[in-house]
Design a protein around this nucleic acid. Sequence first.
DNA 1: GTTGAGCGTT
Length: 86
Amino acid sequence: MVKSIFVGNLAWSAEDDDLRNFFAECGTVIRVRIMKDQETGRSRGFAFVDMDADEADAAIETLNGKNLMGRPATLSEAKAREPRRS
DNA sequence: GTTGAGCGTT
């Protein structure tokens, strides 16, 4: 099972590989996607990371507030697109 | 050569 992690407070120069390496130390990164402006091509400052549920939970608690590209990363479970509950 | 709260796309 995979879980989506919301990553905020990203550096403008952050790329998918940077986030992948950042999360890779806590588990296996399945998918990394940085939200970038489609018109300007610049980073919006946040991204989403898909990892195994156990590893994602561990990553959020372990890498949350850690130093990412010189800035404290804001990690949280993504829940905006598909809400829980039926 | 910028900015900074925020939840996406095949």
